[in-house]
Design a protein around this nucleic acid. Structure first.
Lengths: 154, 154
DNA sequence: TCCCCGTTCGTACCAAAGTATGACAGGACG
DNA sequence: CGTCCTGTCATACTTTGGTACGAACGGGGA
């Protein structure tokens, strides 16, 4: 990296130099126009124009750098899995059966399911058998597989 | 919404009015300073100062409006499911065990797995037991559940 | 060479899952 | 009121799953 003076200092220096140069120009113009007794309006107009230009130049130079548009794309990955109610209705699974199906998918044994929802093992078996019939499967692993593919469970 | 003239037109009009007003002021100042024969330098300085100010004001006003930063959050619904090889290595599952794990997740019984890959039921059981040990589970449904959560299987 | 590991297979046994059938209670509905 | 559905529970039985051994074979690394 080479040496770079601060932008503020550069601007101040430039402003000073410009001002000095312009004052000299003014003086020169002053004498010329005064001596030849020309219209002062043109003189004033010129000064006005130049200093307007200087002002614009200054403003542009000193203005805080423009904020560039930054489009930040934040991509959020979301699981699309959602329960498909229509599929549940198609299978004809009852609330209780669905409950047990979810517990089954959670890796629970029939005994654990029974203990979780406070019913007997027999009842769980009945429900499970009913679930198998409605999902047209023979094993709990198949039931889970099918229920997931039908988006009956997550 | 009420009527809003274009900013450009407003600026041009303002510039015109300002210029006219300043020229009038100049004229007034001109007569006063000329008549009283005061230093023209002060006069020029004043004009310079005013028009520098005008220039700055103009530049600021005419500057293109700052562009606001736009943050776009895009929610992408994407299936992120992919096999995590590092997880497989962590569990220490062998190729064969992985194969059987996938068949298990497909809802196949041990007997069906045996027939699929042409090995005996005993061997399948051995592999399955090994899988359970490595995944630290007690049932196949748990194994499937865990394997899916670890992204060992899809 | 020897040993570890993965893969294979077997037997025996117990636990869990699944099947079949029947029964009873309560709510919804015509 | 009777019927159907859901949910509950039980018994008996078969099948499948899971555990616990042991054993054989072959490839590859110390």
């Amino acid at each position: 990296m080479s040496f770079r003076p601060s932008p503020a200092l550069v601007n101040i220096a430039l402003y000073g130099i410009s001002l000095a140069a312009l004052l000299l120009l003014m003086r020169w113009l002053e004498f010329r126009f005064m001596i030849h007794d020309h219209s002062t309006e043109l003189y004033i107009g010129l000064i006005a124009l130049m200093f307007t230009g200087l002002g614009i130049w200054l403003a542009v130079k000193l203005a805080t750098p423009k904020v560039k548009e930054v489009v930040v794309e934040r991509i959020t990955y979301v699981e699309t899995r959602e329960i498909d109610v229509s599929q549940i209705e198609k299978t004809g699974l009852t609330k209780r059966e669905l409950e047990i199906l979810n517990l089954m998918a959670g890796g629970k044994s029939n005994q654990e399911i029974a203990e979780t929802i406070f019913i007997s093992l027999s009842t769980v078996k009945t429900h499970v058998a009913s679930i198998f019939a409605k999902l047209d499967v023979k094993r709990r692993t198949q039931a889970i597989e099918k229920a997931k593919s039908l988006q009956i469970i997550l």
